[in-house]
Design a binder for these strands. Structure first.
Ligand SMILES: [Mn+2]
Ligand SMILES: [Mn+2]
Ligand SMILES: [Zn+2]
Ligand SMILES: [Zn+2]
Lengths: 149, 149
DNA sequence: TTATTAAATAGGAATTATTATTGTTTAATA
DNA sequence: TATTAAACAATAATAATTCCTATTTAATAA
C-alpha cells in the first residue's frame, strides 16, 4: 500500500489532469507516508527537509486540489483543524482522546448491518449519502498497538 | 423542552457553581431556543437585539464554560467551525449538505445494535467511550420537513 | 443593607488556521 | 525549442477563536 514509485505517482496525478510538479508529488507522497491523518503542519514538517522552498500556500492549495480530484480525503479533527489521508476506501474513524490520533477502522460486516437497518426505515424528504461511525476511544497503553477483532 | 423559566435557568446555572449573570442566562437561553446547532455568529445575532453590549469574547468564554459544566455540547460542523446545542441526550447527527443544517437523530434501537455488535469484539489496548453516527444526507425539498421512521 | 471578594465582563489585541493575490516559474504540448 | 496554461513562492488578507486587563457584578456574610 505504501510502496508506490514516483513514476506511478506521476501517472496518478497526470491521469486526473493535473501537472505532476515536484511539489505536488512530494505533498502526495508525504500524506501517503504519514499515518494517523496528518495535519497541514505535520505534512509541512515531513516535506520541509527535502523541499525547503515549498510555501505554505502551495501546500494548502495542493491539498485542496488533491481532495477535489479524489486523490486525498479531508477529515475534521476533534481539535478543529483539518487532517488529510490517502486511504480512499470507505472506513470509520477512531478518535483517541489521549493521543489525538485518528485511527482507521474498516468493517464491511458492520457497514452491511447499517445498510440493512436503514433500508427498512421510511425516509421522508431525505436522501442519505453516507453513514460513518465516529468512535471516541482511548489507547490504554500509549506504547502498544491497538486492535479490534 | 423549550419552556423553561428564567428562574429555572438561574438555578441550573448556579447548581453547577457558576454565577447566574444576565449574559450567561441570555446565552444559554439562546442556544436552547435556536435549532439545528447554531454557530457562534447565529447565537450572537439571537442575543444582540436584547443584549447589545455582550461582547464576542464573553460569548465564546461562556459557551466554553457551559460546555465544561455539561450544560451545552459542542459539535464540529462540516464547514470547520464549532456549533452548539442544549440537547444532552445521546444522539446522532444528520448533516444536510445542501442546507448546512445539523439535525438530531435519536435511535435507541440502533444504539443497542451497535452496543451488542461491539460487545462481541475483542478490543486490544483500546477503551471505547462513545460511538456516534455521522449521517451525510440532503433534504430533497428544502421547504418540507424531514423524518426517519 | 452594606461591605467584601472572587468571578465575570467589555473591549480590544493577539493568535491560529486558512484563503486570496500577484508577479514569476515550470510542466506539458506541439 | 517555443508556447502557454497551470502552478509556484512570497506575502497580504480574512475568519475564527483565544488572550489580556481594567472595570463591573453576583454571591456571601457581617
Ligand atoms: Mn488513514
Ligand atoms: Mn439539537
Ligand atoms: Zn481515515
Ligand atoms: Zn445534536
Amino acid at each position: 500500500m505504501n510502496l508506490i514509485s514516483v513514476t506511478d505517482i506521476k501517472h496518478k496525478i497526470s491521469s486526473v489532469g493535473l501537472k505532476a510538479t515536484s511539489q505536488r508529488i512530494a505533498i502526495y507522497q508525504a500524506v501517503m507516508k504519514l499515518k494517523n491523518h496528518p495535519t497541514v503542519e505535520m505534512i509541512l514538517e515531513e516535506i520541509s527537509p527535502l523541499h525547503p522552498s515549498i510555501s505554505v500556500g502551495t501546500l494548502y492549495k495542493n491539498l485542496e486540489t488533491l481532495v477535489e480530484v479524489s486523490l486525498l480525503e479531508k477529515v475534521k479533527s476533534e481539535e478543529g483543524n483539518y487532517r488529510f489521508e490517502a486511504n480512499l476506501d470507505k472506513h470509520n474513524h477512531i478518535y483517541c482522546s489521549n493521543t489525538k490520533e485518528i485511527i482507521d477502522y474498516q468493517d464491511d460486516e458492520l457497514d452491511l448491518i447499517l445498510f440493512e437497518y436503514f433500508k427498512k426505515k421510511k425516509l421522508k424528504n431525505l436522501k442519505i449519502n453516507d453513514i460513518r461511525l465516529q468512535i471516541s476511544a482511548e489507547r490504554l497503553n500509549i506504547n502498544k498497538e491497538i486492535s479490534i477483532q
